[in-house]
Design a protein around this nucleic acid. Structure first.
Length: 874
RNA sequence: GCGGACGUGGCGAAACUGGUAGACGCAAGGCACUUAAAAUGCCUCACCCGAAAGGGUAUGCGGGUUCGAUUCCCGCCGUCCGCACCA
């Protein structure tokens, strides 16, 4: 029997081959066991991966392997989010076709991923750029179209006037095109949209049912959907303004109808129809509107933009007091696509309105009086008041709370009429916008539409799907190659047969990832969306991925699932029952004296925060830990770790110490610690086999204290780690394994001292070794297989069960209670587990430390918390 | 600006629903084994006073509730994240 080192380099490929040969991770839909669907967010095949990419896959793998041991039919699939801009950039920069670039990357990344020993069902591997995948996406598009969930409308895009091309937001850098450097314009194009807003309320409400999602993510989605309740109010134009306006009234949206008596201006969006109407005959207004259009759409451009207004000279009548009129401005900060594109300004109670009023000399009338403020002297100067209070200066609202005033105004305006319409209408608004999916790009899923001059946009007949991307395209010029692919583009109209053109826009890649989890359910490539299989597998029991997808990907996926249900394609509404957002792996950064980034293997650490270069010994600037990235070179290649320490060491390290939702720092000493532990398990199992009972030894009738202690530790381990893994507390699971290993080591040392080893201890040693191996199986699967063989098994541990826990061993007969006097610990006492509080009290009062503290006086009170603590109040 | 989270030894952290603060690991120091080193095993390791026994102080800071607070409440300070002209 060998107690040499465990040779990961030899063992790991062997076991990976064994798993693969036996096909044990192949999942069948007709398996009768209860299902468990665990998946990690699929990667974009950008090229080589680094160890930082591996953390979420390892976490998912631990759960998948654990659930298999617990008797579940586990689905743990993998795929590639393989459409996207980087492939096109590679084509432009290096002349490689996006398709070859993508598939080459998939091949090498797959090899690297497989190195990690993940228990994936590669039979269900998908790539979103494969026609066998996107054919279904095109069908879904047509389903959405037929169910009024997809539509076409004009929308603004970033336009590069030099390259004559549309730019994605991330290609606009400081308002300029990333390649041409030209100032980006906003231009309107006809584009396809998915009607996610139809589900706004459902998507919001259902967040409450997602109790296994992080609160943070639910909150982010809630804010993103952004529901607000308010009132639409018609402001009639005053008589003098009617002719110029050419309309009878302007509709505004407000969430603060209570402050209506504080209104001092109305502001229209530059895109508001009335603003445009007026601009037609007023060049200075047209110029103002044009001026509003310059500048980027980015957040910081908007933030720094000065708030500007243009006085139209028109006035409107106050809806609650016909004697009052309010001036109408056009203002650059009013958005056309939220509410009605027009607002009323109440400067006293809205900071932005106040700034605007001060700038243009408008009146500021406070109408909400803060509690305890004096109505005679309260005034708003520089800071608007948006707190609670009661109404004043507000006629029939005076004295009401804000909530009551809102209600009173709504009731009154609902009864008033402007023409046929009620003057006020309660309205719920959402911040959420419909999802524009058109991208003027080549490397994406083609939109299955043909544009005909006489028939308009015509869906591609379903029997002609998929519309596949043409391979014969060039990237030597800016713009979308599909626009130039004449042979592909020019087709007859499916309806009338006249010459027509294909839609050359492709879908946003977020569409690809919005239903791939449904695709995994099917094990038949010809039925990519299999309703019965989806019903069987969905929802995903545990989804694991980065927090960066908290909003878009996860919201789009939720929408897609609901939309598909509305189309009758699936029976589920929420795709992900459990969500976990894992932290990143970070690593220190290193720079040479010239300021160039260095790879970790190019430096030698010489102390805390100091390092020198391996070659030449020049001093190295050590930077703080940051997300691993190729550009900063603070990356570690998985194959290097596998070669040096073995993959199990890397897996153990990734799970240890840091809570999985936090960022974890990759360090040399940390990985060495993990390596030592892997070796320790190997050694302990070997020693336990040597000292322990034979595999077929009968269980002794009785166990002495030493053997019992070890058995308690081993059964406690299996119990604890099961709980830890279920709750994804991998760092705590690792700590519990360490704790057990310490106890195991002591038992082994004790056994060494005995000769011969008593039967009960020998049995316990062997049992403990078995349990340890089973428990670490999900975390360090190769090591566990190797130990499993040593233990005499001819099966695979990957197919073994989780150890049976003897519940009786988890409870002790006696229990040690800490004793406090006045809340300070003054000792402890060991009592029978089932001792009554009175019995405990009696024992406690006899304690020297307690007597000393009481100093002969009777205690005021004794609190006995059974099986927890005793507190004596002196 | 709005919303949220977090703050515990030299470091990563643990502490279940208000009940022994610092489990477990890393680093550091000591000892054993060794010709020596590596590896391994054992021991020490929050801070202050003390030779020790023991005592005191400690979970960002200040209050509060409680027999008892890392945990609950209020106010500050700091760090991080999300949204951001949303009427």
């Amino acid at each position: 029997m060998s107690t040499d080192r465990y040779n990961a380099r030899d063992a790991e490929p062997r076991w990976q081959a064994a798993w693969s040969e036996r096909g044990i991770f192949r999942t069948r839909n007709d398996d009768p066991r209860p299902k468990f669907f665990v998946m990690e967010m699929f990667p974009y095949p950008s090229g080589r991966i680094h160890i930082g990419h591996g953390r979420n896959y390892v976490m998912g793998d631990v759960l998948a392997r654990y659930k298999r041991m617990k008797g579940f039919n586990v689905l743990h699939p993998m795929g590639w989010d393989s459409f996207g801009l980087p492939a096109e950039n590679a084509a432009i920069e290096r002349g490689i076709h996006p398709k070859s670039w993508t598939y080459e990357n998939i091949a090498s990344m797959k090899e690297q991923l497989q190195l990690l020993g993940l228990s994936l069902d590669w039979n269900r591997e998908i790539a979103t750029c494969d026609p066998s995948y996107y054919v279904e996406q095109q069908r879904i598009f047509l389903d959405f179209l037929e169910n009024d969930l997809a539509y076409r409308k004009e929308s603004e895009v970033n336009w590069d006037p030099v390259d004559n091309t549309v730019l994605a937001n991330e290609q606009v850098i400081e308002g300029r095109g990333w390649r041409s450097g030209a100032i980006v314009e906003r231009r309107k194009l006809s584009q396809w949209f998915f009607r996610i807003t139809a589900f706004a309320q459902e998507l919001l409400d259902a967040l409450d049912t997602l109790d296994r999602w992080p609160d943070k993510v639910r909150l982010m989605q809630r804010n993103w959907i952004g529901r607000s309740e308010g009132l639409e109010v018609l402001f009639e134009l005053s008589k003098a303004s009617l002719a110029a306006a050419g309309t009878a009234a302007v509709k505004v949206y407000t969430t603060r109808p209570d402050t209506l008596f504080g209104a001092s201006f109305l502001a229209l969006s530059p895109d508001h129809p009335l603003a445009r109407h007026l601009a037609a005959s007023r060049p200075e207004l047209a110029a103002f509107i044009a001026d509003c259009k310059t500048g980027g759409t980015s957040a910081e451009a908007i933030e720094t933009q000065e708030k500007k207004g243009f006085d139209t000279g028109l006035t409107v009548v106050h809806p609650l007091d016909a004697d009052l009129t309010v001036p109408v401005y056009v203002a650059n900060f009013v958005l056309m696509d939220y509410g009605t594109g027009a607002i009323f300004g109440c400067p006293a109670h809205d900071q932005r309105d106040l700034d605007f009023a001060r700038k243009y000399g408008l009146t500021v009338t406070p109408v909400v009086l803060p509690p305890d403020a004096d109505p005679a002297t309260f005034a708003v100067e520089e800071i608007a008041y948006d707190g609670e209070g009661t109404l004043f200066h507000s006629h029939f609202l005076d004295g009401l709370t804000i909530a009551a005033a809102k209600e009173a105004v709504a009731r009154r305006l609902e009864r008033f009429r402007v023409g046929e319409e009620p003057q006020g209408t309660r309205k719920v608004n959402f911040r959420l916008r419909d999802w524009g999916i058109s991208r003027q790009r080549y490397w994406g899923c083609p939109i299955p539409i043909i544009h005909c001059d006489s028939c308009g946009p015509v869906p591609v007949p379903r029997d002609q799907l998929p519309v596949t991307l043409p391979d014969d395209v060039t990237f030597d010029r800016p713009g979308n190659p599909l626009d130039r692919a004449k042979a592909w583009r020019d087709v007859p109209c499916p309806k009338c047969g006249a010459p027509a053109k294909r839609e050359t826009d492709t879908m946003d890649t977020f569409v690809d990832s919005s239903w791939y989890f449904l695709r995994y359910a099917s094990d038949d490539v010809n039925t990519p969306l299999d309703k019965a299989a989806v019903k069987h597998w969905l929802p995903v029991d545990q989804y694991i991925g980065g927090i960066e997808h908290a909003i878009l990907h996860l919201l789009y996926s939720r929408f897609f699932t609901r939309a598909l249900a509305a189309c009758g394609r699936v029976d589920v509404t929420e795709p992900f029952a459990g969500l976990f957002t894992q932290g990143m792996i970070v690593h220190e950064t290193y720079k040479d004296p010239q300021g160039r980034w260095l790879f970790p293997e190019e430096i030698t650490l010489t102390g805390p925060g100091t390092a020198v270069m391996v070659e030449g010994g020049a001093p190295v600037t050590v930077g703080p830990p940051e997300k691993m990235s190729k550009s900063k070179r603070n990356v570690v290649a998985p194959e290097v770790v596998a070669d040096t320490y073995g993959v199990d060491t890397a897996r153990w390290f990734m799970l240890a110490d840091t809570p999985p939702e936090r960022d974890s720092e990759w360090t040399q000493s940390g990985i060495e610690g993990a390596w030592r532990f892997v070796q320790r398990v190997w050694r302990q199992v070997n020693e336990a086999i040597e000292l322990g009972a034979a595999a077929d030894a009968a269980k002794p009738d009785a166990f002495g204290p030493e053997a019992t202690a070890l058995r308690r530790a081993a059964h406690g381990l299996a119990h604890q780690v099961a709980d830890d893994v279920e709750r994804l507390r991998f760092n705590v699971a690792v700590a519990h394994v360490h704790e057990f290993s310490n106890a195991f080591g002591q038992a082994i040392a004790a056994a060494r001292g005995a000769s011969p080893v008593p039967d009960d201890l020998a049995f316990a040693l062997r049992e403990a070794a078995e349990m340890l191996v089973q428990v670490v199986g999900p975390m360090t699967p190769h090591l566990a297989e190797e130990c499993w063989v040593l233990l005499g098994h001819d099966t695979l541990l990957a197919e073994a069960s989780w150890p049976q826990v003897d519940e009786a061993l988890l409870v002790e007969d006696t229990i040690t209670l800490p004793i406090q006097v006045n809340g300070k610990r003054r000792g402890d006492v060991t009592v029978p587990r089932d001792a009554t509080p009175a019995e405990v009290e009696a024992v406690v009062l006899e304690l020297d430390s307690v007597r000393k503290a009481l100093d002969g006086k009777p205690p005021k009170r004794i609190i006995v918390v059974p099986q927890r603590i005793v507190n004596v109040v002196a």
